[in-house]
Design a protein around this nucleic acid. Structure first.
Lengths: 248, 248
DNA sequence: GCAAAAGTGTTAGCTGTACACCCATGA
DNA sequence: TCATGGGTGTACAGCTAACACTTTTGC
């Protein structure tokens, strides 16, 4: 990047008064519905201003004594009950004016959003019911206009999901403890699209990495030859951590 | 990841009072000294409590009306004068208690740090001199104990630099407009270590990507055959953006 | 037996690696 | 002319993509 010679002038600010912030955490929570082969995002409908009645990412403001990660888990736990998940920090959005509650003239409180990305197991995730259906899964390709800059955050999370899947074993955090190779393949297909790899090649590459244990137990899903159940072997994976491996 | 069945209980907080934040921006600013083949990080010596006399990452608190990115550029511009750089957001650190100025009992102001990662051209970067030598380049493998959690932030940035270099053309942001292929190679060697690739293979892979233009102009660096000067062709690179390409 | 699903094998072409080798210049 | 650094070529191993094939089940 080439910047003006005088970035000092350009980026100096007239006022030296510090901004006061509230910090929010917004979660992009994905799950994969393997029955219908679709990727879902958890949204909640706002019941207050600003953006009343808009759908938004589940979020919360950080409380006294609470860490960012804790706030992310709390938001998650308020919306769904789930035991197996992957969660990581995504990005922080802090432009002045991104929240209409900020008064543009008076330099009041600013709202910074630290976004988190989560992948949860769809089958076990129970939406904590409210009478009003204000929390619901949306297909990732049928997202309505969201409140605030949540479209941008969601898009950021969606890219992270697709990338992360290719070099990190997050899929095994949301698959059952024992799974068939075809279930892994379906998960990858659903997220990355049909055309990322042929099943037999995917299979041999994955097995060659050596961190999947064949339990030798067979399961039959309807007609056809029964499939072996595999387990993720975290000890065998450990040495591969931090290495630039590719799963697909 | 497997979490306790009751994450709701675990992560619920007694108080529902919101935390008040000041938001800081801390920059991990790298440069590569190609003369001595070493990676440098810009540090400044603190002249105030807390951590008086400790070295720290250059940082600042975000001002009213100022965006996070602007604050990052402002910090940079206060320390060094440089025209060519690459800058991106790194990670946000917001644990309660990460800044000793927070009063652990009274739940006062919290300090959140949004960290940024920058790569600048060493040869053109002039440290904006103060009488006291309070700003200085440090070799990345000889970093003293830093203030706050800046060791962790620096480590995070160092990993980002090594990864980013492999799939993104940030090197060309800090090389001269015209450069020899050997200069590119030296840069990669310095950051990734001697053993990442043999020169001739690096060379052919890089050229095959097709975004380097041979200007046909030759330069002689001492003895030996003169090298061709190349230019980065951003138009030719455009279609490769967002593709999972590897430079090494 | 036949369809369906799981799993194995084969091939052709490509890519990475490790070199050997040629080229152009300064001293 | 020789050392030095720039640049090209090659041969082999290993990988990928595409697809044919075998195995084991339910019906």
């Amino acid at each position: 990047m080439k910047v003006d010679s005088s970035i000092k002038q350009k980026y100096s600010h007239e006022t030296e008064e510090l901004a006061d912030f509230k910090v929010g955490v917004d979660n992009v929570i994905f799950s994969v519905d393997t029955t219908y082969n679709r990727v879902l995002v958890l949204l909640r409908k706002r019941a207050e201003e600003p953006f009343n009645n808009y759908w938004s990412l589940p979020g919360t403001l950080v409380r006294q004594g609470e860490s960012l990660t804790d706030a992310a888990y709390r938001t998650l736990a308020e919306k769904i009950q789930v035991d197996n998940l992957y969660l990581e920090q995504l990005y922080s959005f802090g432009e002045p004016g991104r929240d209409p509650r900020e008064n543009p003239d008076s330099f009041g409180i600013r709202y910074l959003s630290v976004s988190y990305f989560a992948l949860v197991r769809y089958e076990e995730a129970k939406i904590i019911a409210k009478s009003d259906k204000s929390t619901s899964w949306y297909k990732v390709d049928e997202i309505p206009n969201l409140a605030f800059d949540h479209d941008e955050i969601l898009n950021y999370g969606w890219n992270r999901l697709k990338n992360k899947l290719q070099y990190s074993p997050i899929a095994f955090d949301v698959l059952p403890t024992e799974f068939t190779l075809n279930e892994v393949y379906q998960l990858y297909c659903t997220i990355l699209g049909e055309h990322f790899s042929d099943y037999s090649n995917f299979r041999s590459r994955l097995l060659k990495l050596g961190f999947l244990l064949d339990t030798k137990v067979k399961v039959s899903r309807g007609a056809g030859r029964p499939a072996s159940l595999y387990k993720f072997d975290s000890e065998a994976f450990a040495p591969l951590k931090d290495k630039p491996l590719l799963f697909i």
